[in-house]
Design a protein around this nucleic acid. Structure first.
Length: 574
DNA sequence: GCCGTTTTCGGCCCGACTGTTTTCAGTCG
């Protein structure tokens, strides 16, 4: 079982406990453990099976949870979950996705009215049976009805890149609003998460109503969910929620810290503050003395952290994973930046399914300040893309030779994205591949094969001496396609052994490897290549999305191979 | 259910807003 699968089951347990009205701190302990398992950069099964190691060494995993994890790993079942499901049908968990309906109200619907599904909720609301319940009334019924459609798509978080486009438009609208001194976007957007569930805008303004009016007038604003003195929430036409907070200058840094999160990062931070007799909230850092509260800091975000002798963590690291440990040991990594990258080693031309010519791609790379690129068109198995056979590939390489003679500032490498065939083996013979400068191998067909089979195909590719890197190693498409059942840990062990690199595909729909896998690769000391997989000139601009993901994985410039000049990279791949 | 410079019990981050209430519970972030 993978960490994700195990985390999924503990997540169900957590939701069911919450639905049952269990002790909120117990619920939190389960939610915390769920996340820890998901974020662990090594397989938790390996820890269970290693007698010299203890699950309880993981922060947030105690004796009880360790036993449950062990049971799950050893038997494939979790008796606690089975028992919970005899008490509560799994379908009621969908009720929790209705905005405005939390565990208490959802449980009341189930207990009092026997409601188990979203359809039954709709029926009960339309029949006005919900408003009869204690704690409910007409308004709540309306809210639930309005939220039902959203519940159906509630797990649809949008790509960071899409959120970024909306952010640009909203910043342009709100920035020059009268009274606004500072304006920032916080939340998971600022932390660079691959998907974003809502957007949190933060303004330092002496005229809150002016900026709130402006948000209300945004052409894409559909409904106003709430509006108070300092806080406003709206929903855009596409369903995305925008939260706006207005704070005074002396609280701006504290609010930025607060609303950037993550929630778990903040819980840890506030716990640390409390143990020092301090209190941190969105209004500032305060010294608490009896009933007296003395304002200490809050103007700048860094001041908030400094009050606890902490560095101002890059937002991408604020996930309560390793950042506090790094800070206390003075090992906070200096994260890779877009400007560190000097090459792009995965892109296509119109020889296959790209839109631009070889020369246009080269010009575009020069315009973006790159010093080398690899042309990696598809191999022949990818018939839909008119993949290259040996003859066409060699002709492209001759064209690249001629191009390189004319270019001063860019080296174009002769490459190929060679398919890893369904039955195993590569799509082009070794006597062709051995003449390439750079080869990425990837799976496009047979993606649904059992884990053992697809893993073996990739391991065989890694053992081929001509292969430089594995492209998009799990094949997932965010919100659209699950990752292959590949054993990523085995792939990393093999990549390390054979000196191969792994790709972080910067396409905003892929971003594969993800942040947790990046940090696993770092643990294995495998250099990552961040590549655009560009199919057009504009496709070269996605590199920044890949860099964000790498930063979330804690990668430094040294951890990313294509921050090096090509001769050094070439030495790395032998 | 976890945790320990408050150490095996008694805490566990904190505030805004809404709706249903007449002082607060629930939800959200």
């Amino acid at each position: 079982m993978t960490n994700s699968q195990i985390a999924e089951l503990f997540g169900q347990v957590t939701d069911l406990l919450e639905f049952q009205g269990a002790n909120p701190f117990r619920v939190r302990a389960y939610r915390n453990a769920t996340r820890k398992i998901h974020d662990l950069p090594e397989p938790i099964t390996a820890i269970v099976q290693d007698e010299s190691r203890q699950l309880t060494d993981i922060d947030g995993i105690g004796k009880d949870l360790a036993e449950k994890i062990t049971e799950l790993v050893n038997t494939g079942r979790l008796s606690m979950l089975d028992e919970l499901l005899t008490e509560i049908p799994e379908s009621v968990l969908a009720l929790l996705r209705i905005p405005g309906l939390g565990p208490k109200k959802a449980a009341a619907l189930y207990r009092e009215l026997g409601i188990e599904t979203l359809d039954q909720v709709r029926e009960a609301c339309l029949a006005h049976r919900v408003r009869e319940l204690k704690g409910f009334a007409a308004k709540t019924e309306e809210t639930i009805l309005a939220g039902l459609d959203l519940a159906a798509q509630a797990d649809k978080r949008i790509y960071w890149s899409k959120a970024d486009a909306i952010v640009e438009r909203l910043l342009a609208l709100l920035r020059d609003c009268p009274g606004v001194a500072r304006l920032e976007v916080a939340g998971s957007y600022r932390r660079g998460k691959e998907t974003v569930g809502d957007l949190d805008f933060l303004a330092d303004s002496d005229d809150a109503s002016a900026i709130m009016d402006r948000l209300a007038e945004f052409e894409e604003t559909d409904t106003i969910i709430a509006r108070g003195d300092t806080k406003m929430s709206v929903r855009l036409v596409g369903g995305l929620q925008i939260d706006l907070r207005v704070v005074p200058a002396k609280s701006f840094g504290a609010a930025l810290q607060y609303f950037t999160g993550s929630k778990d990062h903040n819980v840890t931070l506030r716990g640390m503050a409390k143990s020092r007799g301090l209190k941190i909230n969105e209004w500032g850092v305060f010294r608490v003395d009896g009933d007296c509260e003395e304002y200490l800091a809050g103007h700048e975000e860094a001041d908030v952290y400094a009050a606890l002798d902490l560095p101002c963590f890059p937002p991408e690291l604020r996930e309560a994973r390793q950042e506090f440990d790094w800070a206390s040991s003075g090992e906070l990594p200096e994260l890779v930046q877009l400007s560190d990258l000097c090459g792009d080693l995965h892109m296509h031309t119109n020889a296959t399914d790209g839109k631009a010519t070889l020369e246009q791609m080269a010009d575009a790379a020069i315009a973006r300040g790159l010093s080398y690129i690899a042309i990696t068109d598809h191999s022949k198995r990818v018939t839909m893309a008119r993949g290259l056979d040996a003859d066409r590939l060699r002709r492209q390489w001759e064209e690249i030779d001629r191009l390189n003679e004319r270019l001063d500032d860019l080296l174009v490498l002769k490459g190929i994205e060679v398919d890893i065939l369904e039955r195993g083996g590569l799509d082009l013979p070794d006597d062709v591949l051995c003449d390439a400068d750079w080869i990425v191998a990837s799976v496009h067909y047979g993606q649904n094969q059992p884990g053992e089979q697809i893993t073996q195909r990739i391991l065989d590719a890694i053992e081929n001496p001509n292969v430089s890197a594995i492209a998009h190693p799990t094949g997932r498409l965010i919100n659209r396609r699950k990752p292959y059942a590949v054993d990523l840990e085995a792939v990393m062990v093999a990549a390390r052994k054979h000196g191969k690199l792994l790709e972080l595909n910067a396409n905003p729909a892929r971003l594969d490897l993800d942040d947790v896998a990046c940090s696993a690769a770092k643990r294995h000391e495998i250099p990552i290549v961040i590549s655009t997989d560009a199919h057009s000139i504009d496709g070269l601009d996605v590199m920044r999305f890949g860099v964000l993901q790498a930063r979330r994985g804690g990668l430094t410039k040294a951890d990313v191979a294509n921050t090096r000049p090509w001769p050094e990279m070439q030495a790395m791949i032998g």
